[in-house]
């Protein structure tokens, strides 16, 4: 079998102690290992304080790592020097939870979409616009949106722009950090469908971070549940949803309404 696109081994992230005499805090990420196969979607589930954000930030190299390794697309990711890292960052696209915060309020959509490309070197203005418009259309927005600004868009539209930005450099790995939890239900459905299409068309691998197990169950092939910095449950999505081993996972899953697809369909038929 091929090498996974992303392979994390025994990763430990610990933040600096707060005072000179205070004890070092417990690790935010504690000996986490996971693998994401090329072309698949890995769901990462956890609540606040579970360490999922720290793990993400470590993958993005925004926080220092205490020990462990990350292999990404053949690179020893944590050992890449700053200059090389800047080039290789194009292997990852990131979509954050709230598009209105993650898109600069001052720039037009065209400028926002151009930014990742110009960060990688000079690109002719004509090509910038062309590629931006193409990716925007792929994400379901007409090219006329290029001259708008983020605040003129609806939440769903802005999130489409954020996805287009993440994909404009054709990354292999798309990291989605709660991409739908700020959106309405009907918009969430649109975005999830869009992601599914993009994954198929572009052969993307996805790391899908969320606290919503139902969303994870829908989108991911495998998933891990994090709590207190550790992975407490990992496996294929079918396996975890049908027979969660941990009480905590059961709690997460047992919440709210749990109809099967068939029930809803029959209800709709009335």
């Amino acid at each position: 079998m091929d090498e996974p696109l992303l392979q994390i081994r025994d990763l430990v992230v610990r933040y600096r102690r707060t005072g000179l005499f205070s004890a070092p805090p417990p690790p935010a990420v504690n000996a986490v290992s996971l693998a994401l196969a090329t072309g698949s979607t890995l769901g990462l589930v956890g609540e606040s304080g579970s360490g999922k954000s720290s793990l993400l930030r470590a993958i993005l190299r925004l926080v220092p790592v205490e020990s462990g390794t990350i292999r990404l697309d053949g690179d020893d990711w944590l050992a890449l020097p700053e200059q090389r890292l800047r080039e290789r960052r194009r292997a990852i696209g990131v979509v954050a939870q709230n598009p209105f915060l993650s898109l600069s309020p001052r720039l037009t959509i065209a400028e926002i979409l151009a930014e990742p490309m110009t960060a990688q070197g000079r690109v002719p203005a004509e090509e910038l616009r062309l590629r931006a418009a193409e990716m925007l259309e792929r994400c379901g927005l007409p090219g006329t949106f290029l001259s708008r600004r983020a605040r003129e868009l609806s939440g769903g539209q802005a999130q489409r722009v954020a996805i287009a930005r993440a994909l404009v450099l054709q990354p292999k790995l798309l990291i989605l950090d709660e991409p739908t939890s700020a959106l309405d239900i009907s918009v969430q459905a649109q975005i999830l469908n869009l992601l599914e299409d993009l994954k198929r068309e572009l052969g993307l691998s996805m790391l899908f971070v969320t606290h919503n197990l139902k969303v994870v169950r829908h989108v991911s092939d495998t998933h891990v549940v994090m709590r207190g910095g550790r992975i407490i449950e990992a496996g294929s999505t079918e396996q975890i949803s049908s027979a969660p081993a941990e009480e905590y996972t059961r709690q997460l899953m047992g919440y709210g309404r749990n109809p099967t697809g068939a029930e809803v369909a029959s209800a709709r038929r009335g």
């Binding site: 080039e87 960052r89 194009r90 709230n98 915060l101 898109l103 600069s104 309020p105 990742p116």
Partner: peptide, 11 residues
């Protein structure tokens, strides 16, 4: 987040 996003893009 938008500043962080720029960093992650390699700006």
């Amino acid at each position: 987040p938008y500043i962080e996003a720029a960093r992650v893009m390699g700006v």
